[in-house]
Design a protein around this nucleic acid. Sequence first.
DNA 1: TATGAACACGAAAACGTTTGCGTAACTTAA
DNA 2: TTAAGTTACGCAAACGTTTTCGTGTTCATA
Lengths: 341, 341
Amino acid sequence: MKTRITLKKIASEFGVSISTVSKALKGSHEISEEVRERIQAFADFYNYKPNNLALQLRNQKTSVIGVIIPEIVHHFFSTVIDGIEQYANKRGYNVMVCVSNESYEKEVLNFNVLTNGSVDGLIVSVARGTQKNKKYNHFEALIKDEFPLVMFDRIIESIECDKVIIDDVGGAYNAVEHLIEIGSKKIALLTTQDYITVGSLRKEGYLKALKNAGLEIDESLIYKINDSENLYEQIKKVFNSKNQPDAILAVNEIYAANALIIAKERGLSIPNDIAIIGFTSGLISEFTSPPLTSVVQHGYLMGEHAAELLINRIEHISPTEYQKEVISTNLKIRKSTFIEN
Amino acid sequence: MKTRITLKKIASEFGVSISTVSKALKGSHEISEEVRERIQAFADFYNYKPNNLALQLRNQKTSVIGVIIPEIVHHFFSTVIDGIEQYANKRGYNVMVCVSNESYEKEVLNFNVLTNGSVDGLIVSVARGTQKNKKYNHFEALIKDEFPLVMFDRIIESIECDKVIIDDVGGAYNAVEHLIEIGSKKIALLTTQDYITVGSLRKEGYLKALKNAGLEIDESLIYKINDSENLYEQIKKVFNSKNQPDAILAVNEIYAANALIIAKERGLSIPNDIAIIGFTSGLISEFTSPPLTSVVQHGYLMGEHAAELLINRIEHISPTEYQKEVISTNLKIRKSTFIEN
DNA sequence: TATGAACACGAAAACGTTTGCGTAACTTAA
DNA sequence: TTAAGTTACGCAAACGTTTTCGTGTTCATA
């Protein structure tokens, strides 16, 4: 790459000082009309642009926010990033994305790389590995330094910082309520392992709705899927069990879509034999047959809010106490739970 | 945020010079054992880490690569980013992601922000707006400065830089060949507007395969979808036409899935009445009913290759002439074209 | 002719590093 | 005792900016 032109080079070209050039290009009245115009023309010709690194160092501000997410090939997370990116742009910030791949080690690595001056603040959704081993030292170090930090979706309650979450409890509650309304009595739950916060919150909503409707809780209808093993085989167990449900609530789109496929393989009619709802943020639910009723998560909104919280914190226009924003879901009813009279 | 500890602060703490501290922390033999240990202990205690900005400025290297893509909520693009990110990490680079939102103006803006020293190189997939208005000045400026640049997927032929593309022609060719093999005679093409390069390349493969099989080309079977209008309504036209196809090749997953839905609404049996294939990189095709035969694009691989080309260029270990890598597709045959005997 | 203001520019510090070179103090050997 | 070598550190430049303050010249005014 050719080296870019600098103030120094322009200065030596005109035999003036660096400060003169700097002032000239900023249109300072300290510089005579004539000199200013000549410098401006020269700079334009060589397409001068101030070096960002130098500015960042001087201003002690990068105008970059770092985002660390468990995965990026994931509709929900990419939607959140989209929201973050668009909002950050409006406020004059850029976004640096790192992927933890659900690994604690990689997450720590990303923390180290990003918090050494490369970014003004961090938005994080916690890796599964971290949630599992509960090692939060990297977060604690950040908090101790008062480094601007926002957690979203997968959060750690004990870490004091701004947070944005989906109303997981409410979403699951509404979904179950809807299933009960259409007559379901035995509602299975396809959820994650307990250490995934969103999974356990959705379970909480599920349980709450059952209780509220006076339905008994049947632990054998709760299936905890292990994401590192074969999904299809695990979900099959729901249908192999002697305790057959008449409805399923899945905590994500993939679980729901797999359940739908298996149900159809078994010759079950949907929603008559079995109704299915999944949490979603993607497109799959629209294109299955029948399309899946979904708890829609507004990832874009979540991203926007996370970015707003972070930037306000960076720019010291936040209240001192930390905020916790809850993004509500809505239930998109499609054919997988729609029973025609 | 608390200000981080710097060499200067440590130096004044011990009453030594900054260079002594720097050398001590780098384990230089110039510094006595005793002083070194004391400085090291102090630095560890205060969790000293060199300021990245300062290093970047001094070394004239950021170890960051910029990525500008048309959208991020898109399975293909997020998969490419994943590939870029993982590969870049292995080589010690981080990734800064910007979204052009298909807009020429936003793309130019991103160029300006990223090429002022923030990144060592750029990976770009061209915005639709840019492809449409054919204003390539921002690219040309980069090339003139010999700024490391790699284009992927949506490329501009006339810009001289490293490129990575999908074998769009071959992918479409194979898909059509497959359709012909299963007996299709009238194959419709659901493609994009001409200015989208991947769309026209896929059309090229489509035409080539028809010619090769001695089938006549029927322009009325070629539908150019406009992404800014209602997809569903546009695709409906295929089925409203008096010229009914017995197969459809769609240049992306969404077109294919919509076609499938509409076909089923019309009571058509798939693949008997009409076979459908889509280009894909997402999950939708697996979960439709029947699942869609797909031209699978290996986005992850593409990302890896793009990052490799770029980093090699940055580190001057590329051949002088620019490379153009072609990532081949493969045809994943599913039920939407699988006719049982 | 002095005084003061206005004008136009330069010097230098600051942001936080790294590193080549200079140099005191001390040690060793002749 | 002296020359040479070693040890252990400091100085200063460099990366590219911005900005405060200082200063020399010109000009008008009393």
